[in-house]
Design a protein around this nucleic acid. Sequence first.
DNA 1: ACCAGAGTTGAGACTAAGTCTCAATAGGAG
DNA 2: CTCCTATTGAGACTTAGTCTCAACTCTGGT
Lengths: 143, 143
Amino acid sequence: MARELLEALDQAGVRLTGPRRELAALIARRQGHFTAADLLADAEQRSLGIGRATVFRLLELLADQNLVERVDLPDGRHAYVPCEPSHHHHLVCVSCGAISEVDDCGIDAVTAEAARRSGFEIQSHRLELFGRCPRCQNVESRQ
Amino acid sequence: MARELLEALDQAGVRLTGPRRELAALIARRQGHFTAADLLADAEQRSLGIGRATVFRLLELLADQNLVERVDLPDGRHAYVPCEPSHHHHLVCVSCGAISEVDDCGIDAVTAEAARRSGFEIQSHRLELFGRCPRCQNVESRQ
DNA sequence: ACCAGAGTTGAGACTAAGTCTCAATAGGAG
DNA sequence: CTCCTATTGAGACTTAGTCTCAACTCTGGT
Ligand SMILES: [Zn+2]
Ligand SMILES: [Zn+2]
Ligand SMILES: [Zn+2]
Ligand SMILES: [Zn+2]
């Protein structure tokens, strides 16, 4: 999965540098969503000597390329989720952070209707669903 | 409109203090979305002597009461929109910030389907639509 | 009208998120 | 291998948001 990120970056015409390879690997082994701070902590823990700015720069690059999506958690934090470049949405587990992808069947109809009623010309949308994943539901019910 | 905010706050059992009345009035006269910084700047410009913390505290209070909704702008900033307490979503003009409310007809079906497929128990969702309002479309096309 | 006490306030310290600058470094095309 | 440019890390800086605490002010009860 780190490979996919790197290939896509290569495709995008940027250099495949050491720090980028290392960060891609760190992102790949992450489960669910993570924040820039999480990634930075991962890097520091392994003494990779990667600077704060480099982390933010790579995340921005990946987000531009739709290799990673920025999610706004209900508590206001910004997190990232590695994902397919195609348009879709995320279901986020509020207790463990697990992610499930959702294709947006049906949402387009909603946006089209909203556009018709309001006269707005809709350019983009963001849909985020929050809840508890099957595993967390089980854990909870067994306690 | 400031009156409505204050009545709702009263209903919620919090004190109607001077700073809250003043901030409610400032919020009421705002068009479209605004950030905490905007509101703070409004207050400072009028030398109301309202502290930064008070602004954040009131916004949190209003958000808890669903009198204001927190919107995450595409550029990552957090903004607020005064709105009806009932569940709904916002259409945000990316060039002037104008807001249009959208009731979520159809979205519930999407979330139900996503829940069924993923096994998640969905607790909440957030939908934000971004585009250009009718006025901004006209301005653009006349230039 | 008065009072008491809990809720609220502003100042300012503090933390965390994110950006910017710049000299040094390292990809990678040729 | 060489050169040029993209990229890097350090650290200063800016901004968002939180926290603490002594001072203040609502408000309900008298
Ligand atoms: Zn979970
Ligand atoms: Zn969509
Ligand atoms: Zn507009
Ligand atoms: Zn909804």
